[in-house]
């Protein structure tokens, strides 16, 4: 039992309490203030947040894999150290988010089980392979870039522990995005082969990165409620548009192109127009048939099982120390 999860299944004793709770909740949302773990909240709000935050945590944990794939083959010691720091950050982000979700009354263990048995989802972007070193750059620039676009407004999410976790995460993500861009910059200013490698990585990650914002607004049934609850501040399409507007000049600065023939500046709208994304592919990957879904899950299960002895040893050691301390205290009592 923890102080932060004590509230979780406390039944509301009667209808009046529930009504008062709802009124207070509505008032806090209307004032654009924050909900803390022990405040009354509607069940739908709690469930939505548990799903969203735990999926987000799982994405950070699974997201370590495509990048870690290149740690042993990073082109220099400096690059290797940077990549290790980045992958370690992703683990940290997962842990911040698991902690935030736990304040809503779900246990860490339950979330881990949901990931391992496949009942919980994670971002479909991590089911794509990292074929070359340039992919590490494309992930940092495009995938982390899209994540930041999504996450900055989440710092103001109405559920306070989620917002607090996102503040920490956003601070750290900006290093990820810049280091990714710099990897691509070095490659695009290197040999023709290196530049071609960078272009190939961008070509493969552009579409999936844009899909990270989720389906188009007219096909995103939960968005409206999340926006009413001040969890989500901007629609999927709004965020996607901002992202495209941001990366076009960044791609130009790299000397690389974005693989979209329909991409062009629209003077009237003051935004870039871009082509339809491959939503059939998106659904296929979400349903588990992407290029790396099986591999990612298998690796996570193996890592969990292979780590069991460490967890067992730590628990056994803690138990032994506690017993010794208790014995020492007893001896002192007897001696006195």
């Amino acid at each position: 039992m923890s102080t932060t999860s004590m509230h979780s299944d406390a039944p509301v004793s009667n209808l009046d309490d529930e009504r008062a709770g709802q009124e207070r909740f509505d008032q806090i949302i209307a004032e654009d203030s924050r909900i803390e773990p022990r405040d009354w909240m509607p069940e739908g709000y709690r469930k939505t947040l548990i799903r969203q935050i735990s999926q987000h945590a799982h994405s950070e944990i699974i997201g370590m894999q495509p990048e870690a794939n290149w740690i042993t083959r990073a082109p220099s010691l400096k690059r290797k150290m940077i990549l290790m720091a980045k992958v370690q950050d992703e683990a940290g982000h997962g842990l911040y988010l698991y902690s935030a979700a736990e304040t809503l009354g779900i246990s860490r263990d339950e979330m881990v089980q949901q990931l391992l048995d496949g009942t919980a989802k994670y971002s479909s972007i991590f089911n794509y392979p990292t074929l070359t070193w340039a992919d590490v750059g494309a992930i940092g620039w495009l995938v982390d870039g899209a994540a930041i676009q999504n996450q900055v407004p989440l710092c103001r999410a109405s559920y306070a522990p989620y917002g607090r976790a996102m503040v920490r995460i956003c601070k750290e993500e900006s290093f990820h995005q810049r280091q990714g861009w710099e990897i691509l910059y070095e490659l695009s200013h290197g040999t023709p082969e290196q530049k071609a490698m960078a272009q190939d990585a961008v070509n493969r990650f552009y579409g999936p990165a844009l899909q990270m914002f989720g389906p188009p607004d007219d096909n995103s049934p939960n968005s409206k409620q999340s926006m009413a609850w001040n969890i989500k501040r901007f629609s999927n399409d709004e965020l996607r548009q901002r992202f495209v507007d941001m990366i076009v000049p960044q791609a130009e600065a790299l000397g690389l192109t974005l693989p979209d023939p329909d991409l062009k500046w629209n003077e009237e709208r003051g935004h870039y127009d871009f082509g339809e994304l491959d939503w059939d592919e998106f659904m296929t990957v979400i349903k588990g048939k992407g290029p790396c879904n099986v591999q990612r899950m298998q690796h996570r299960r193996e890592a969990h099982e292979n780590g069991a002895w460490v967890r067992e040893a730590a628990a056994a050691y803690a138990e032994k120390q506690a017993r010794r301390n208790a014995d020492a205290a007893d001896r002192q009592l007897i001696g006195a």
Binding site: T4, G92, R164
Partner: peptide
Amino acid sequence: AGSLHAPDDTMALRNARDLYTRR
């Protein structure tokens, strides 16, 4: 700063260092 799970106080301190003071 946040919270974490650990088997004992010593590990909690080490985990806290790794998780909350990387920078």
